[in-house]
């Protein structure tokens, strides 16, 4: 009695699932390639110093942001249906974390040694 009740899939269901998974795989590979590419550019810009530092820093931060989005939406499935709560939680978590960091930098003097 200890095994789960499972019904076999119909042929149509199986076909549909296969198509879904192929598409999913393609998206994963594309976003993976994109992320590797962005990382390369970021490393390259920093290593070769082709443009001045005040441009490199925001550019690298921008790439990082894009990668975070790709990571969350494609690798961690936030683009899929039924992830509204996960999204809400992540956004709230981000908001709190950023608020805490800002206050720590400004009123706990953690920033002071850096200056």
């Amino acid at each position: 009695m200890a095994e789960l009740n499972q019904e076999p899939m119909t042929k149509a269901q199986l076909e549909y699932l296969r198509r879904q998974r192929t598409r999913e795989m393609r998206q994963q590979l594309v976003s993976f390639g994109l992320m590797i590419f962005l990382t390369f550019i970021a490393f390259g810009l920093t290593a070769m110093e082709v443009i001045p530092a005040q441009f490199t820093i925001p550019l690298v931060l921008g790439f990082a942001f894009i990668q975070v989005i790709l990571q969350f939406y494609y690798f961690m499935h936030m683009k899929d249906n039924g992830h509204q709560f996960a999204k809400l939680f992540m956004m709230t978590g981000f908001y709190f974390a950023i608020a805490f960091c800002v206050t720590f930098v400004y009123i706990v003097w953690i920033g002071a040694p850096v200056n």
Binding site: F100, T103, F104, V108, W109, I110
Partner: peptide, 12 residues
């Protein structure tokens, strides 16, 4: 170290 960090973490 910095003891104020404890206070912030505790009250957060």
């Amino acid at each position: 170290g910095n003891t104020i960090i404890w206070e912030h973490l505790f009250w957060i």
